[in-house]
Amino acid sequence: MDGIKKFFKDQAHILNQEAWNVAHEIGEHPELGYQEYFAVDVLTQFLIRHDFKVERPVAGLETAFIARFQGKKPGPRIAFLAEYDALPGVGHGCGHNLIGAASAGAGIVLSKSEELMGEIWVIGTPAEETSGAKVTLVEKGIFDTVDAAMMFHPGSQNVSEITTLALDALEFTFLGRSAHAAAAVQYGVNALDAMINFFNRINTLKKQISADARINGIITEGGTAPNIIPEKAVARFYLRARSRMTLDELREKVIRCAKEAASMVSAQVTWRKFEFSYDDMLTNRTMAESFAQNLRELGIKKIASPQIAMGSVDMGNVSRVVPAIHPYLALGKGMDVPHTRDFAEAVVSPSGEHLLLLAIESLALTGWDVLNDPKLLQKIKREFNQKN
């Protein structure tokens, strides 16, 4: 490890206790998406103490922020993305308290160099667990002047390069005509019958799609009483696939199933997106290789090969407008399952503290590579332009 990277590693150790206090406080005060006022206060105060200039709110989102630090010399602009929302009934079962503190900590560590070229942004991104505010930030142009974006996520293993599934969240509403279910059945149009037919068609469709595609749905409304023919039935679905193109094709097949199911009982059907759509994560391999090399320099030898995460992240949308990485780092022994109370307990334990330091170090060193090596940044951008 060269001298400047040794300096950043030392700075990470100096900052470690303060960063852990931030992560622990957020972990002990879980807040749902768009309600993360405590977390934003803690993170922005942390950044302000280290001379970052904070703008909040951003893009019309009250719990979004941008913290900026300008180096003494001109250069690229990199962004570390902070998450900090929790899961309903679980708390920080996805470790977003660590993500927010790690991104802020990495930005602060880099800011300590007198040789810093360019600008560091720490972007606070709310509501990843629910509606995905990164989609809004992308649409509002927040990333238009950013050269590279990165964050980390706690998980079961060290993985520098991941892909995720594209996601569409669809709500289908079937409309029929109510009638007495015994005395006037001939006058009714049963919306629930259409819905059940729809689910049967979806079950048939599932047998015809690729193994890495997903169709998961629930009925949220199916009638009011057994003796009234339901005039309205509503269902919500998550559709996932390896690529946006494949998902678009799958969505059209699902919509066709809904229309055919409605027509069988003379019902009507409409559909809408009830949450933002996520694109599949397009990891910048060049930047991911830099991250992996920094992990090795930090003594991490066990790094898994590229992985397909069978979930979806709003970082996928970011990766379509700026070169981006979303690596995973192992929490403890990698035995805790995300989205559980056990995971929420682990991220505020000594295992969480140990992981936070590694995340700050590896993100900061990768950020330095991007800022300090024009040839690397050129290669990162060339790869990005070829894939988009």
Rank of each mutant, 00 (worst) to 15 (best):
N200T: 01
V313D: 02
M281T: 11
A101K: 10
E171T: 13
D41L: 13
A179S: 09
I78S: 10
F343R: 03
T44Y: 12
L247C: 09
E289G: 04
G95T: 00
I325K: 03
M315H: 04
I255F: 05
V22I: 15
L87Q: 11
V122E: 05
E361T: 04
A211H: 09
N21M: 12
A309L: 09
A261C: 06
V54R: 12
G107M: 08
A241F: 06
S305D: 15
I308Q: 09
V22C: 12
N97Q: 07
Q157C: 12
A184L: 12
G155S: 01
K6A: 15
A79K: 04
G105E: 04
N197T: 00
D369L: 06
G75Q: 10
F65I: 10
E161G: 00
L298R: 07
L192R: 03
A127H: 13
A292W: 05
D369W: 11
I4S: 08
H354T: 15
P154I: 00
P374L: 14
N97T: 10
Q157T: 04
Q268N: 10
N200Q: 03
A241G: 08
D2F: 09
T286V: 15
E139Y: 08
I308M: 14
K206M: 03
E289F: 04
A262K: 01
E18P: 09
H326D: 02
K379E: 02
Y238L: 02
E115V: 08
G27L: 07
A194H: 02
F52G: 14
K206N: 10
G316V: 11
T220V: 05
H180M: 13
G100M: 11
C94P: 00
E28D: 03
R382Y: 11
A364S: 08
A106T: 02
K259W: 00
A258R: 01
E18M: 09
I300F: 11
D10R: 09
A102E: 06
N197D: 00
I123A: 10
S290I: 07
Q70R: 14
A211Q: 13
V159C: 03
T366M: 04
P374V: 11
F52A: 15
E128I: 09
K140M: 04
P126C: 11
M195L: 07
D373W: 09
S263H: 08
G95W: 08
F199N: 03
H354N: 10
L137G: 13
Q35F: 13
R236F: 07
M195K: 02
G188D: 06
S263L: 02
I228G: 04
W121G: 00
P306M: 05
S103Y: 01
D314Q: 07
A364L: 10
S178G: 04
A106Y: 00
T163G: 14
Q17P: 01
